[in-house]
Structure formats: C-alpha cells, structure tokens
C-alpha cells in the first residue's frame, strides 16, 4: 500500500507530469515543424484578428450556428469541458497535496461545488457515451479508440467522486483515482485527446482562411 502510494504520487506522478507537459510541447513543436517543412504557406495566411474572431465564436456557447442547432449537446460539451479543466485544478484535495509536496497553493473551490462539478463531468460523459451509442452519425464513426478515450477521461472523475464520498472500496478508488488521473494526463498529448492543445490551431487556421481570403464567417 505505502509502496504503491509512494510510486503513484512519486515517480508515476512525475512521469505523468513530464510526459504531459513535454508531450504537449512536443506535439506543438512537431506540428509547427511540419507546417514549416511542408506547408509553410499556412504561416502566410494566419491572421491574429481572424483567428481570435473564429475562436471567440466557437468558445462562447451558442455563438456559432452549429451550437445553436444542437442546444443539448452545446450545454453538455461546454459544461463538460469547463468542469473537466477547472475541477482538477482547483479542488481542495489536489491543492493540499501540491502544498505538501511543493509548498505552494492557490485558491480552492468549495468542496460542495467541486463535487457538483465532478458530477457534471460524469453526467456529461454519460451523455457522450449514450450519444455515441444511439446517434447513428456518431455511432458510424465510433471505433474502439473513441470508447477508450472517453473512458480515460471519465475514469478519474468517477473514481474521484467515489473516493471523495468514501463509498465502496475507499482505498481502491482513491489509488485508482490517482492512477487514472495520471493515465489521462499522459493520454492527452498522445491520443486524440490532443484536441485540447491542437484544436485552437486548426480553428485559428480555418478562421484565418475564412477571414482573410474567403471574407466569410466560419461559424
């Protein structure tokens, strides 16, 4: 138990953080290098103004036509992503652990709110799961990798929720929570979860093409 805990919160955590930050950096550099090497013209079409215009329209709920066409999905996806990113960063238990390890801390969410946000992530992940199953156009393009990455993301939140409430096998779920969180961090740069870091760039490029060349809206 202690050895496992030591491993998970020591070497494994370090590995996860290094692979996450290093991997993200690697992906970004690799993408830019590939653009530089093979599609350098892209740089000449990039426009900060139109990139931001496009990003804003897609990062505000219901601002894009397609968001308005899919109200349930829009609420689910925005709630999911917002809670997914904010909860682990501001939940008290994480901050206390960081403070124990590195003597620094920052603002933390009230536990009740963090609990609710975790539930939002779980419920939305369930929504995405069901959507993949029942919506024909999603089902058609769903493969094993889609189930895997959805599970990778949902696992730390489900186990974290159970651990916080100390339901069922507390020790198991807490240890699994730590482990699955680390798996998720590592998976972000190396799976299609990399949309977290890459999608702003694809969006910005499309926004630039639409703004600068096509003089049309891309939302």
């Amino acid at each position: 138990m202690h050895t496992a805990y030591d491993m998970l919160t020591g070497p494994c955590a370090w590995t996860a953080f290094i692979l996450f930050f290093g991997g993200c950096l690697y992906r970004l550099i690799k993408m830019l290098w590939l653009v530089w090497k093979k599609e350098r013209f892209i740089f000449s079409y990039m426009s900060l103004r139109y990139s931001l215009r496009s990003l804003v329209h897609w990062m505000v709920p219901f601002m894009a036509v397609n968001w308005r066409r899919q109200p349930v999905l829009t609420i689910a996806t925005f709630a999911f992503h917002l809670c997914l990113i904010l909860t682990p960063l501001f939940v008290s238990a994480h901050i206390i652990l960081w403070e124990e390890a590195w003597q620094f801390s920052w603002w933390m969410l009230p536990d009740g709110l963090a609990d609710a946000m975790t539930m939002v992530v779980i419920v939305c992940a369930g929504y995405f799961f069901i959507r993949r199953l029942v919506s024909p156009e999603v089902r058609y393009v769903t493969g094993p990798s889609d189930w895997i990455i959805l599970s990778i993301v949902a696992a730390p939140f489900i186990s974290g929720f159970l651990a916080y409430h100390q339901w069922f096998a507390y020790r198991f779920f807490t240890m699994f929570h730590i482990f699955s969180g680390e798996v998720m961090l590592v998976a972000i740069p190396f799976t299609r979860l990399s949309h977290m870091i890459i999608s702003p760039f694809t969006r910005a490029y499309m926004g630039s093409e639409f703004g600068k060349i096509r003089h049309a809206r891309d939302w």
Binding site: M1, H2, T3, A163, Q166, Y170, R171, T174
Partner: peptide
Amino acid sequence: CHLKEKKGPVLCGECHHK
C-alpha cells in the same frame, strides 16, 4: 511519518472519515 515508516494511513479518507 507514515510514509517514511510505510505504516499507517496516508490517503485523505483514511484519517478524515466521512
């Protein structure tokens, strides 16, 4: 101490019971 001695509770809920 628990970590050092590899004994005793280390997870949050092992001390802070609900």
